[in-house]
């Protein structure tokens, strides 16, 4: 399996749009210990930004609340990221994950591509959601440079 957790961090913050950049910077800082490539760091930042923005824009559309970001590094070089909110939840997850599907009003110019972006940059994206209870997006990416450095040991 994924072996042991070698490092872990949990960060919670209020659902404010200015925390989108804070969250992706925190994820990039955590991922830095894997000695990532430029492309890997960009992928992690983009995926975290998508999930956190979704919690802020959709999850807490009609309410306010807290977003939690869990970061874990496994001994096989897998970076685990969970983004959780206790917002509105998603009625139909497969539909929500379809490219160009968005429930946001047109004037907000959401392209409906957030999940597609997450899936194209991460190895695994899993969504759990309960209407009225909230949403958790779990993503994983095998950090190649870490793999190399473990092999080299």
């Amino acid at each position: 399996m994924k072996k042991d957790i070698i490092n872990e961090s949990t960060i919670s913050f209020p659902a404010l749009s200015r925390n989108e950049s804070f969250a992706r910077s925190a994820a990039a800082a955590f991922a830095a210990q894997t000695d990532p490539t430029v492309a890997e760091i960009a992928a992690v930042k983009t995926a975290v930004s998508e999930a956190v923005t979704n919690s802020i824009v959709h999850g807490y559309r009609d309410s306010s609340g807290t977003v939690t970001l869990v970061l874990r590094l496994y001994s096989d070089g897998t970076l685990y990221i969970a983004v959780k909110d206790r917002g509105s939840g998603i009625a139909d997850i497969p539909q929500a994950m379809q490219p160009m599907f968005s429930t946001a009003p047109a004037e907000e110019e959401r392209s409906g591509l957030g999940f597609t972006v997450m899936e194209s940059f991460m190895d695994r994206v899993q969504v759990r959601s309960t209407l009225g209870k909230g949403t958790t997006v779990v993503m994983e990416k095998r950090m190649r440079s870490r793999e190399k450095c473990l092999v080299g040991r």
Partner: peptide
């Protein structure tokens, strides 16, 4: 230095 799907919408 960075964009996500918000840049696509823009």
């Amino acid at each position: 230095g960075f964009t996500d799907s918000s840049g696509i919408g823009l």
